[in-house]
Computed example of a mutant assay.
Amino acid sequence: MLKLIGYLRVSSAGQVEAWGLDRQEAAIRRWAKANDGRIVKWCRDEGVSGTVEAVERPGLAEAIELMAPLKADGIIAADMDRYARKLMVQEAAFGVIWQRGGRAFTATGGEVLQDQDDDAARTLIRQVLGAVAQYEKTQAVMRMRHGRLAKQRAGRKSTGSYAFGFHGEGRGRERDAAPNPAEQAARDEIVRRRKAKESFREIAAALDAAGLKPRRADRWSAMAVRSVARRAGLS
């Protein structure tokens, strides 16, 4: 039975894509079950680009370091581009794994075989797949950049978080700020009370008493109230 360390990676913590963390794990488990494999450890990198060197990724570096102590046969990722999105980074990552006596696997293609002097096609195929992953990454970044520029030209919000009282609505280029009903009530109360000359501390206490919550905390602070008031054009 193969003893494998499962490696999961997404480029951003909140990423939703074809290879989100849950789907990666499910694909790896299916492959392991079908190929007499057992996952002895899961390592992950969340919010880490595939262009970052393997040794600078905590999850992948941990997986490589644990191969020997866990007596694992190697590492498995969902696909080649989970190891890397740049050809040079991919080759370096596999090189480190092989140097440590491990094997590399993917749930979509099985074992990534090491170079052999009498099988140049093996190296060519692996590097072509790596080059395709790098090309797709470049194209995705370009599309995102063009999308942001198009939204900016149209006067729409393209980057950053949304002010309290608003959230993102729509998809792709159509996504823009829209009122968040759960936060609008608190925002309106802040505006009303600030116009009535109440202090930030008084407003914070009133919001807590009314059960109107801030976005990321359990209770309102004077500084949080001040921030919302300033965004609404009030000092």
Rank of each mutant, 00 (worst) to 15 (best):
R30P: 00
G95H: 08
G59V: 08
I28A: 10
V40C: 00
R82T: 06
I64L: 05
L60M: 11
P58V: 00
I39P: 02
M88L: 08
L87G: 05
D79K: 14
T51I: 11
G74N: 09
A32I: 00
V96L: 02
I97Q: 04
A32T: 09
W42N: 00
L66F: 04
E53I: 02
N35A: 10
L66G: 05
E65V: 00
P69K: 02
A54G: 10
M80A: 03
R103I: 04
I97V: 12
F94A: 03
G101M: 09
A26G: 07
A84K: 12
R82L: 09
R30C: 01
A72T: 08
L66N: 12
A61G: 07
A68L: 05
I64F: 01
R23E: 05
A72I: 04
E25H: 01
D22K: 12
D81T: 12
A93T: 13
D81I: 07
A78C: 07
R57V: 13
E46N: 08
P69W: 09
I28Q: 07
W42P: 00
G47E: 14
Y83N: 10
K41F: 00
G50I: 14
S49C: 04
A26K: 13
I97T: 06
A72F: 03
K86R: 13
M67H: 10
V52W: 14
D36H: 14
G95P: 01
A84S: 13
A78M: 08
A77Q: 06
D79A: 11
L60P: 04
R57Q: 14
V55T: 02
P69N: 09
R103F: 03
A26L: 11
R23G: 01
G95C: 04
D73W: 06
G37E: 09
D36C: 11
W31T: 09
K86L: 15
G102F: 02
A61Y: 11
G101D: 13
A61W: 10
Q24I: 02
E53R: 13
A34D: 10
